[in-house]
Design a binder for these strands. Structure first.
Lengths: 102, 102
DNA sequence: CATAGTGGTCATGTTTTTCTGACTAATTGA
DNA sequence: TCAATTAGTCAGAAAAACATGACCACTATG
């Protein structure tokens, strides 16, 4: 009988999967306060590990939410900061947070 | 040195994890159009299976986004419909969808 | 009475995700 | 020169998520 034969694919699925990955919401949240760094994140996120944080950073970067920058000054290091695309997610994220807080 | 010793826990994490679970965005999306049913969902979601859909429905219900109702009329069956809490997520979901569409 | 549809559960297996610990390599400071 | 900090990679193990197929109980239809 097939009551609803339409395609039920969902545009939000891949974005949700990306954002929900381990340590990603936490990293995104910290990135809202300013550029983040690999080792600093490891210290800020108790229970995290190099591998997962590296993967999270890479995927957030590939998704165009974070921009990786090599800082050649003083003590040579790498920073990740939100892109415009990353910033455009702020309202969504704020809503998710306020919803969770209920 | 511990530059940032604050707790970095994130209120959005659990909600994101809930929403990102397999078939959950698709089920939520279909529920926006009206009450959904178990076997009907299985037909509407190609590639899905009883187990995953059952788990998704249970978790969405436990999270208070869906309400399970036994319909005692005509051909006895069960419906899941969005709660007020579930409806309050609509704007978030719409934003996620429009963001994905870019 | 048999068959199909309703809405599941359960045990098991596979696949995906995440974690652990070892290792690398360049830079900096003492 | 030694040790620490930077930012990772890699292989393998463990844990979590997901899929498969069998089964169950009830209702409805022929």
């Amino acid at each position: 009988m097939n009551e609803f034969p339409e395609d039920a694919s969902c545009p939000a699925t891949s974005l949700l999967k990306l954002l929900a990955g381990k340590w990603k919401p936490e990293i995104y949240r910290l990135a809202l306060e300013g550029p983040v760094r690999f080792n600093s994140l490891l210290r800020q996120l108790p229970g995290s590990n190099k591998q997962s944080v590296a993967v999270a950073l890479k995927e957030l970067e590939e998704a165009g939410l974070l921009q990786k920058t090599i800082i050649t000054e003083k003590p040579l290091h790498i920073e990740y900061h939100l892109t415009e695309k990353g910033l455009s997610l702020v309202p969504v994220f704020k809503q998710l947070e306020s919803f969770s807080a209920e």
